[in-house]
Simulated assay, not measured.
Amino acid sequence: MGSRLTLSVLSFAAAAAVAGCGSGDSTVSKTPMPSTSAPTPSAAATPAAPPPPPGPDPCAVNLAAPAIAQAVADLPKDPRSQQGWNPEPVAGNYNECAPLSAVIVKANTNAPNPNTRAVMFHLGKYIPTGIPDTYGFNGIDATQSTGDTVALTFAGGMGLQSVVKFRWNGNGVELIGNVR
């Protein structure tokens, strides 16, 4: 009977030990086990896709605007050479947001000194009529031009440069001054 009693006591002790190892007593349940899967990155740690590049600014000077080529195609021929006009501007400040902007074009000829003229625009639209004579100009003085004023330049025979200003007055273009 002694060996049975010893075996019973041992069985009881083993059962008590197993019963005492509940989830609240075990250090195994309190210690996190290493994870075998990679942690999921949080939304803040995920790099965002870069924003798309901005489109061209419609209010920037754009000498390649389709409106320029269309306006030049609509011009009457150069009176001196009887040729059309080259649609590639020699100079300009075309801006579809400006009350007045202009480009300088030259006659489409192989002559050594082709005729030039200014083509004016109001809010990006060609102004076909009501403009004082704009032949002979070869540049734009950006320092004297504003949103509603264009300062056209031409060089005289002795190398002197002159400036003629045109302004959008709310209804049309007017000549406002000659500056030397």
Rank of each mutant, 00 (worst) to 15 (best):
Arg4Ile: 11
Leu10Glu: 10
Phe12Glu: 05
Ala15His: 00
Ala15Thr: 12
Ala17Arg: 01
Val18Gln: 02
Ala19Gln: 04
Ala19Asp: 00
Val28His: 11
Thr31Ser: 11
Thr31His: 10
Met33Leu: 15
Ser35Phe: 12
Ala38Pro: 15
Ala38His: 13
Pro39Thr: 13
Pro39Phe: 14
Ser42Asn: 07
Ala48Arg: 13
Ala49Met: 10
Pro51Ile: 03
Pro51Ser: 12
Pro54Phe: 05
Gly55Val: 01
Asp57Ala: 05
Asn62His: 01
Leu63Pro: 04
Ala67Val: 04
Ala71Val: 09
Ala71Thr: 09
Val72Gly: 05
Leu75Met: 06
Leu75His: 01
Leu75Tyr: 01
Leu75Thr: 04
Pro76Val: 04
Pro79Ile: 02
Arg80Cys: 00
Ser81Asn: 10
Gly84Thr: 12
Gly92His: 06
Cys97Glu: 03
Ala98Arg: 02
Val103His: 04
Val105Lys: 01
Val105Asp: 03
Asn108Met: 07
Asn108Cys: 00
Thr109Tyr: 02
Thr109Ser: 15
Ala111Met: 11
Pro112Cys: 01
Asn113Asp: 13
Pro114Ile: 11
Thr116Gln: 14
Arg117Val: 00
Ala118Gly: 14
Phe121Arg: 04
Gly124Cys: 05
Tyr126Leu: 02
Thr129Gly: 00
Thr129Lys: 14
Ile131Trp: 01
Asp133Met: 06
Thr134His: 05
Thr134Lys: 06
Phe137Cys: 00
Asp141Val: 08
Thr143Phe: 06
Ser145Met: 03
Thr146Asp: 05
Asp148Phe: 08
Thr149Tyr: 09
Leu152Val: 07
Gly157Lys: 15
Gly157Pro: 12
Val163Cys: 09
Val164Arg: 14
Lys165Met: 13
Trp168Ala: 04
Val173Thr: 07
Val179Ile: 15
Val179Asn: 14
